[in-house]
């Protein structure tokens, strides 16, 4: 390998530049840049009866826009409910009577927390807890109910639907 020093330097330069370019591509185009999202955030909590398959780091969306992430999920020993902590970007303000629901993107997709803004004048701040929540729809319950209704349809006719579980 009797390569000229300058040619070798050039190749190594091209290689390093390409490698860093690939990293940059991964960081910007493929991933979300959370490490450098040093933007201010605030954390709120919500208690759910059932969180289904919700995971830490699941997105928190409002009107379909990602406004934050789930940072912690705990089980409350006194109320037997799941306490979900969410970190929201501080540029997103929500009224105190905002409601939270656990939804699924697509039929079998990832689960996320959807926030539905209320009408209050006061805004949520760090550490606040959401009052109105709606847990995950558990598919097995839904199917069970559907079959139950089908079976009853013949006899009693149209029954009033129960509230969502």
């Amino acid at each position: 390998m009797s390569m000229k020093k300058t040619t070798l330097d050039l190749w190594v330069g091209v290689f390093v530049a390409a490698g860093l370019g690939a990293l940059l591509f991964l960081a910007l185009r493929v991933g979300s840049f959370s490490a450098f999202e040093t933007a201010k955030t605030y954390t709120i909590q919500a208690a759910f009866e059932n969180i289904g398959g919700l995971k830490v780091r699941a997105p928190v969306k409002s009107a379909g826009v990602v406004v934050g992430r789930v940072v912690d999920i705990r089980f409350d020993n006194t109320t037997y409910e799941a306490i979900v902590s969410m970190q929201l970007g501080s540029q997103y303000k929500f009224p105190t009577d905002t409601s939270a629901a656990i939804m699924t993107s697509g039929l079998l997709g990832e689960q996320y927390v959807a926030l539905d803004a209320g009408g209050s004048d006061r805004m949520l701040s760090n550490g606040d807890t959401l009052r109105i929540t709606q847990g995950a729809v558990v598919l097995e319950n839904l199917i069970g109910k559907f079959l139950f209704n089908k079976a009853e349809e013949g006899g009693v006719g149209a029954q009033e639907e129960g509230s969502a579980p």
Binding site: L26, V30, G31, S34
Partner: peptide
Amino acid sequence: QMQAAVDFRDDIL
């Protein structure tokens, strides 16, 4: 979807 799921620190770094 890729961007939403891939985290810079947890996955790429």
